[in-house]
Design a protein around this nucleic acid. Structure first.
Lengths: 145, 145
DNA sequence: TTAATTGCAAACACTTTGCACGCTA
DNA sequence: TAGCGTGCAAAGTGTTTGCAATTAA
C-alpha cells in the first residue's frame, strides 16, 4: 500500500523514475480517465517539471506493461488513461457536460458466449460506453451546453 | 430505390452534387465502415476527381444531416463512416486482421432501463464494440499479425 | 558503467479552415 | 443570380520520433 508504486513498477520490469511515479500519482488521484495533456497540466500545477512528450512516453510505457489502461470514447478525439484496476469496467458519459463516470458490473457475459457460437469468433473482449444526460443536465432543459 | 440519393439529399435540404452522390455511392457500396481516406482513394480509383478536404466536408455534412453515421473504434485513430441504416448496430472487430463486421441485434435494451433507475441519467444511447479473433485468425496460431 | 529515460525540436497523421472560384437550384 | 459547394494551401490538433544529455540500477 505504499504510494510510490515501486512494487508495481518493479513487477513490470520498469525502472522507478520521478516521472513515472508522478504520472501514476495523477492517474491514481483521478476518479475519471484523463488525457495526456491533463496529466501534464496537473503535474505542472504540482510544480513537477516534465515534458509533454515524456508524458506520452510514460503513459505509453505504462499502458504497454498493463499498469495503465488506454481508452477512447466517442466525441473525444484524444486517448484517455486510467490506472488499470484489473476490473472490467464501463463508462457512462454525459452528453450535456461531458462528465465521465464508471459503471459497476457488466451486462454482456452471457451475450459474448452466444456470439461466439453464432460467429465462430474467439471473443477477446468488448468496449461499451453508455451515453446520456446526467441528473443535473437532464434537469436544466435539454442538457444545453 | 434510385441510386443517386436524390430524394435522401433533398429530404435533408442538401443540394445534390456529383461529389455527394459519389461519396454516398462509396459508402453504400461498402459492407464495412470506411475512413475518409478510403472514400477518397476509392473515388480516385473510379476516376472521380475530388479533393480530400472535400471528402471530409461532404462526410461531415452528411453526418450532420443524419444520412451518414460517424463512428470510432478502439485501435483505429481515424473516424469511420457508413450509410446510416437507422438500425441500431454493433461491430465485431477482429484483433488479428482488423476486419470489422456488423452484428445484428442489441443485447442492451433491458440493461439501459435498469441503469436509468440506478443512475438517474437519461440514457440516450450507447456504443458497443466486440473484439476477438475471426475464424481465420483464430485458426492460424494465436492470431499473429 | 551502461542501458533505460528524458528534454527538445522536428516530424507525423488526421482533420479543419480561409478564400476565391464554380456550380446547383 | 444568389448562395451553397469545392479546390487549394495553410493551419490546427493530438501524438510520435531522433538524438544528445541525464539518470537509475
Amino acid at each position: 500500500m505504499n504510494n510510490d508504486f515501486s512494487s508495481a513498477l518493479k513487477k513490470s520490469g520498469l525502472r522507478k523514475t520521478k516521472h513515472r511515479t508522478a504520472v501514476l500519482g495523477v492517474l491514481d488521484g483521478s476518479a475519471r480517465p484523463v488525457a495526456a495533456e491533463d496529466v501534464y497540466l496537473s503535474l505542472k500545477e504540482d510544480g513537477v517539471s516534465i515534458n509533454l512528450s515524456t508524458v506520452y512516453r510514460v503513459l505509453d510505457t505504462l499502458a504497454s506493461s498493463g499498469l495503465v489502461t488506454r481508452l477512447s470514447i466517442a466525441g473525444e478525439p484524444r486517448s484517455l488513461f486510467e490506472i488499470n484496476t484489473m476490473e472490467h469496467r464501463h463508462y457512462l458519459v454525459c452528453v450535456g457536460c461531458n462528465k465521465i463516470e464508471c459503471i459497476e458490473g457488466c451486462p454482456l457475459k452471457a451475450y459474448e458466449k452466444t456470439l461466439e457460437k453464432q460467429t465462430r469468433y474467439a471473443i477477446a473482449g468488448h468496449r461499451l460506453d453508455i451515453y446520456g444526460y446526467c441528473p443535473e443536465c437532464r434537469d436544466k432543459g435539454r442538457g444545453a451546453k
